[in-house]
Design a protein around this nucleic acid. Structure first.
Lengths: 146, 146
DNA sequence: GATGCGCTGGTCGAGTTCCTCCACAAGGCG
DNA sequence: CGCCTTGTGGAGGAACTCGACCAGCGCATC
């Protein structure tokens, strides 16, 4: 990817609502040219979307946890992600190297909801779980430096 | 938080670039009223910002890993997050319950950069590390259901 | 080595839409 | 009744969006 696109992406990572006019000023391009590049980045899949960054506590999701997951039957075909995709408390699902197969990042209002969620995960995917509760998060969702 | 604000936040989680006019149509409010509410949500810290969701591979950050971190000296005051805040490869830092103290989420171009980053983390924070490499991520950054 | 063609990616301008601010109204609440 | 909050509506200006046009470049052709 060339340098102009990279700079545009960088700017949109820092402020997803920046206007095309401002992007143009920041890159030395015309509004239309920037707009065109952004559209291309979107349809090439480089930019997958835009979102607000929200304080989890403010929306009653004060408890974050990482759940490591391992199938009971290692020989069965592994469709764990599809089995869990319907659980909206799961923010992310990573397939990982190591003792367990997946790491899930989940957000719930409180401990009771976590207990409940764990049961649903185990029964939906046929897995054993090991969960790590996060106590606080010093920082999160920082935009990468390109 | 009341229901209208919740719906606005939900919509902005799904599309961070939605216009105030559209938000108004979706919530049954006038453009001005929505704008006002969003500004309040921003300055109350409920909405912390906006960002583009970018394909990491497209910006040469193909390797994601979780690094569990534990200080060499458990009795020393723990300022690990501050010591690591300057490393831009670290996307998130969570203080966790369990054997280790923190979980870091990092993104680098490749294995060599990970090795290098680990050395910098250890020397900057005086910690031992245990890293879990992610092989693929079925999904990530899903907007929570409110 | 010129000529000409098509592709890519840029500027410019005009019509439309959206943002943003202000004045003002309706509903609680002391 | 007066004040605060939260809404509506409107007007001016800014931003978006589209089409027309142009410059550079690669490349086949002569």
């Amino acid at each position: 990817m060339e340098e102009l696109d990279q700079r545009i992406v960088q700017l949109l990572l820092q402020d997803g609502r920046m206007s095309y006019t401002d992007l143009g000023k920041a890159t030395g391009l015309s509004t239309s040219a920037v707009h065109q590049r952004v559209r291309r980045l979107e349809q090439r899949g480089v930019i997958r979307g835009y979102t607000a960054i929200v304080d989890p506590e403010a929306v009653d999701l004060a408890l974050t946890a990482f759940i490591s997951v391992k199938p009971f039957d290692p020989s069965a075909p592994d469709d764990t992600p599809e089995r869990l995709v319907g659980l909206s408390e799961i923010e992310a699902c990573h397939s990982v190297a190591g003792d367990e197969n997946y790491i899930l990042k989940v957000r719930v209002p409180g401990p009771g909801d976590l207990e409940d969620l764990l049961a649903r995960i185990r029964s939906a995917a046929g897995v054993s779980t090991r969960t790590t509760v996060v106590l606080s998060t010093p920082y999160e969702a920082r935009p990468p430096k390109l």
